[in-house]
């Protein structure tokens, strides 16, 4: 989510609550004979309000499980989660008088600090990473489909190379094409972009106007096709199969550009179009790799944030029972 001008209202509210509670705390701390304590009336009040904010923030998970229930827009819940969750930190600090206390409360304070910190980290990521993904991955696809798209790219590359160099044993000639009724298609951006538009397994008719007609492909002899065959078998196919493997120059845009430039000088004119196709396939594969990495950043922090926040709520409830009863 973007932290933008539309969140101004929440920001002001949060700031206002913080300032008011801060003022109350200062007055309370200065005047308290034994210093600020969690068990005092004001301390308890801070604790209750702070815990209530934490519970509201935790309920976002439950709210997401019933997306169509009309319990308030998900956007409002998310903003509440962000700002009230953030507010819970100073309120709990005020509650404890900035003391971490015994074992349980110490654990709770650290849990709270890490949870809020991870939440802030996540908010920052969700502010910047979508923009990075939009700019860096114009050929973005659905995350769960990356494997399928990668396989389609590999098949397309196999076809292109075998059409030029002869059979390499990859393409099964009698495979029947299946057509699905309906189904989504990955389409190209229609605004001008630096990524050259091309035809691939991922392009639908919507972008056909932007694609030039392919020239006729001529079969090269063994000597002519050797550089390409070697490059494809030793580098490109491995990159398409295992993009995360270390040391692959095709994983770097500049290095890939140099590699293809060098190949261009070694191959005859008849192979140039195929080479261009392969270069674009590599580019798309790199984009998928980039998308995977950014996606992990975008959601990976939740692996820390969610378990810790659940632990925080549970232990917080234990603390409430313990503190009030004993």
């Amino acid at each position: 989510m973007r932290i933008d001008a539309t969140q101004r209202g929440w920001a002001w509210l949060t700031l206002g609550i913080f300032l008011v509670s801060g003022g109350v705390y200062v007055l309370y701390a200065v005047n308290a004979p034994a210093g600020p304590r969690g068990g005092s009336v004001i301390g308890l009040a801070f604790g209750i309000v702070g815990f209530a904010f934490m519970i509201f923030a935790a309920l976002l998970g439950a709210r997401k499980r019933v997306p169509t229930w009309r319990l308030g827009r998900a956007q409002a819940w998310m903003r509440g989660h962000l700002w009230l969750g953030l507010l819970s930190l100073p309120l709990i600090l005020f509650h404890g008088g900035f003391h971490f206390g015994g074992t349980l409360t110490r654990v709770l304070m650290w849990l709270l600090l890490i949870t809020v910190a991870s939440g802030l980290f996540g908010a920052v990521l969700q502010h910047y990473v979508p923009r990075m993904m939009t700019a860096d991955v114009p050929l973005e696809t659905i995350y769960d489909e990356i494997g399928n798209v990668r396989r389609s790219l590999r098949e397309e590359a196999d076809h292109a190379v075998e059409a030029l160099c002869g059979s390499l044993g990859f393409v099964k000639r009698d495979t029947a094409e299946e057509l699905r009724a309906g189904g989504f298609t990955a389409l190209r951006p229609i605004a001008a972009s630096s990524v050259p538009l091309r035809t691939s397994a991922a392009v639908s008719a919507g972008a056909s106007a932007a694609v030039a007609a392919a020239p006729e492909v001529v079969l090269l002899n063994a000597e002519q096709s050797a550089p390409l065959t070697r490059f494809y078998l030793q580098e490109m196919r491995l990159f398409l199969e295992e993009p995360l493997r270390r040391g692959q120059r095709l994983g770097d845009a500049e290095k890939a550009k140099s590699a293809f430039a060098a190949l261009r000088t070694l191959l005859p004119a008849a192979a140039q179009y195929t080479l261009l196709e392969l270069e674009e396939i590599c580019d798309e594969a790199r984009q998928l790799l980039r998308q995977e990495r950014l996606q992990r950043w975008l959601h990976g922090w939740l692996l820390v944030h969610i378990p810790l926040s659940l632990a925080l709520i549970l232990l917080g409830a234990v603390h409430v029972v313990m503190a009030l009863r004993y």
Binding site: R2, P130, M133, Y143, H299
Partner: peptide, 18 residues
């Protein structure tokens, strides 16, 4: 809006739920 969307698929899940 891809600059706001975190690709969380909440929209898709909500559609399926409905």
């Amino acid at each position: 809006d891809l600059q706001k969307c975190t690709r969380c698929d909440a929209c898709v899940n909500a559609c399926a739920d409905a």
